[in-house]
Simulated assay, not measured.
Amino acid sequence: MGEILSIDEVMKRASQQALTINSTNDEVDGGLVDDPRYEPEPCPYCGRMLKHKAYSLFGRLFGSHLEQCDCPGAVAKRERLYQEQLKRQQEEELRQRMRKIERLFDQSRLGKRFRDRTFEAFEIRDYNRKAFEIALDYAQNFGRYKEKGEGLFITGGYGVGKTHLAAAITNYLIQNLKGTVIFGNVTTLLGRLRFAYSDDSEYEETQILKELYDVDLLVIDDLGKEKPTPWVEEKLYNVINERYENYKPIIVTSNLGVEEIEKRLETCGGAIVSRIIEMCRGVKIMGADYRKEKIK
């Protein structure tokens, strides 16, 4: 949005502009002049008679307006109108921001459950404090990490907060309009791609792949949990390699270590793991499953 100017400032700038034009062009008339076409009117606050003014250019009058009074009542009214205009603009900017955030959430495919997985809602413990600090720093300084194509590879057992941290980064980036994100496990990320081959799909394979290639941050949750068919491995490798070659960061979470992932993904596991190691900073969380603690 442009700069908001008070009415006084608008008139001051317009007058200065008219005088500047007049000083640089001898054929231009006297700039801001009294407009004889209208009778003076009293100020509703102090009663002072106010003249109508217009801009004189080449013998013609343009932009006729009543001059402004500088009495306290008139000044207060102009300030009130300015503040009302400013409030309307701020409200509209907020509406536009919220609409954009909602579109980003729709694009991210982040499930409703994970929209509550924020940094504020994360339960910090001794064993996950370092991982929390790394994830928060990554979100707050995403622009720097994005430029380098650097991501995170978060590993650990069940229920230690890996997915929560990945979702918290996603939520932070979207809420603060820091970038576009797509979040999902391999099955959901490639599910739309598989559906593209059906007659009912409204998207082509190239469109879906382009999304996965171009999004600012791709979050692959629970890598190694999917059924490792050759087709899945090939497409997963294509996506990761495309992002690797173009410095597009990824975040990967997994219950498995790199050697276990490599063994599980028999066809392309070595190449996939090699790319992840080069692209991502390793973050390991060692702790108990907090879900089990809740039912004790």
Rank of each mutant, 00 (worst) to 15 (best):
I124Q: 12
E147H: 03
L19V: 02
L61R: 08
D137G: 13
Q68D: 07
E133C: 10
K146A: 06
L94C: 06
R113D: 05
E123G: 03
D106N: 14
P36N: 00
R103D: 10
G47D: 00
Y38Q: 06
F119Y: 06
R129Q: 13
R103W: 08
R144W: 03
R99H: 12
Q83D: 15
R117W: 15
E123T: 05
R60A: 07
E120Q: 09
V75D: 01
T118H: 07
F132I: 02
P36E: 00
Q83H: 15
S23I: 01
A131T: 01
E92N: 10
N25F: 12
R37V: 02
V33A: 08
F62I: 03
G30T: 01
A131Q: 03
K100T: 04
R129H: 12
D29Q: 14
D106M: 11
E41V: 09
I134S: 04
L57H: 05
L61S: 02
Q83F: 15
A135V: 00
D126N: 13
A14Y: 11
I101H: 10
P40V: 04
F132L: 05
L61E: 01
E79Y: 14
E27K: 14
Q90L: 15
R115E: 03
K148M: 02
E39T: 02
R109M: 08
G30E: 01
I154E: 00
R95T: 06
R95N: 09
V28Y: 08
Q96R: 15
E147T: 00
S64K: 05
E41W: 07
E102W: 08
L66V: 01
